[in-house]
């Protein structure tokens, strides 16, 4: 499944980040904590420490709390796209954060990670992130390239 391949390739990419929270599986990422940490590394002027502090990182046994985190992350990314990049993702199916929080759904997580990737390849330090991708295995690079191209066709 292509969507799941995107998810697992982007998890491989996310593993290059020095994050405090575990980030090696869809289950690890389903509470949004590691993803929020990644965003605050990628674009610290936008995903600030006060923003990160609003992401709940303890007692996340109730999946609804995970979804609350994921909604804040998705909202933040969409605001970044609009305010910083001046784009909206017309026609890109937004990730179903309920499916990620409740079932660690890899396909939906793949969509969310695709949006995180888009922040990384457009941020001020994009050179660092793109070069990291270029040093990864060819098949992972190819999937990431396809994921970027899909987003590029949906930007307006």
């Amino acid at each position: 499944n292509e969507r799941e391949q995107i998810c697992y390739s982007l998890i491989t990419w996310l593993e290059t980040f020095p994050l405090q929270s575990p980030h090696s599986s869809p289950s690890d990422l389903s509470d949004g904590v590691a993803i929020a940490q990644a965003l605050s590394l990628i674009a610290p002027n936008f995903f600030t420490q006060p923003w990160l502090a609003k992401i709940k990182s303890e007692d996340l046994s109730n999946w609804r709390l995970k979804v609350t985190n994921l909604k804040k992350i998705l909202k933040g990314i969409l605001e970044y796209n609009l305010e910083y990049l001046g784009v909206t993702m017309q026609g890109f199916q937004m990730p179903d954060v309920n499916a990620i929080g409740e079932h660690s759904d890899a396909q939906e997580l793949g969509r969310l990670l695709q949006l995180v990737l888009n922040v990384a390849i457009n941020c001020d330090n994009k050179q660092e992130y793109i070069q990291t991708i270029m040093s990864m295995e060819e098949d992972v690079q190819q999937i990431i390239k396809n994921a970027i191209q899909e987003l590029m066709t949906k930007e307006a």
Binding site: Y84, L85, I121, C123, D124, I130, M134, E138, Q142
Partner: peptide, 27 residues
């Protein structure tokens, strides 16, 4: 000599793609 041009190999095409991203203006 039948060798593929660098830009036509998978590696070359990937490098071209990511280099084109690098050359885009930040932000």
């Amino acid at each position: 000599d039948g060798k593929p041009q660098a830009g036509n190999t998978t590696e070359g095409m990937l490098a071209n793609f990511f280099n084109s991203l690098l050359s885009k203006t930040p932000g």
